[in-house]
Amino acid sequence: MVRGLGRAGIAAIHHTGRGGMFLASLVGGMGMMVRRPRLLVQQIHAVGVMTLPIILVAGLFVGMMLGLQGFNTLVGFGAESSLGLAVGLFLTRELGPVLTALLFAGRAGSALTAEIGLMRATQQLDAMEMMAVDPLPRVVVPRFLAGVIVMPLLAALFSVVGLFGGYLVGAVLLGVDGGTFWSSMHEGVDVVHDVLAGVFKSFVFGFVVTWVAVFEGYSATPTTDGVSRATTRAVVTGSLAVLGLDYVLTAIMFSEV
């Protein structure tokens, strides 16, 4: 039992170490993106545009939920005029970056892992190596960069749609004054500490989730079973990393204010 735990621990450390080395070689392969921007554009399409619908729908629903819950809670204190502030803070600080990252891990991250893992299992990566093409800069780097670029944009769109969802429920359905909704938001939401902190968070999340996804795919056991396990692991690791990092980043960025 103890030995089993020890072995699992060593395996986990080994896996993490390989992930770190992998990240280093990814950064080393970034030069190619300057010469081949098309590869990046294609991946932004695959990773970003294809994830957009789920992000927009989820953002709208979450915003509407915030409007409803916020109103019901605040009206008890007679503070429903602060609804805009509450919705704005929740979305820009927390829910925008975190939920976008979780949805991204489930939709785009798993797809990335499965895609790269299948390329490994069907020897496509080996074939590239034999054609004297390094698969790291050709296949992995554009996907990784696309994830890092796309995540803050998706999170911003999530927040914007969410704000309108909150406005829709709070102001249109429940009768909070629309002007008050927007002005209380503008009054209380700070660009640096709320909006940009959220953007920074989603940037970190994009980095970690995509890194985990492409690494798990690249190092997957080259069998169908291996790929499906790698996909599961990528989503689980990515999601847990997002939630853990969210706490750490929140503690660092919002504590001294």
Binding site: L118, M119, T122, Q123, Q124, D126, A127, M128, E129, M130, M131, A132, D134
Partner: peptide, 23 residues
Amino acid sequence: DKRGLYHLRRRMGMLFQFNALLS
């Protein structure tokens, strides 16, 4: 080294067991 190896590989072709076409 890696460069030299890749250079040599340009003179090799390989047909893989499962074709390994880029899907």
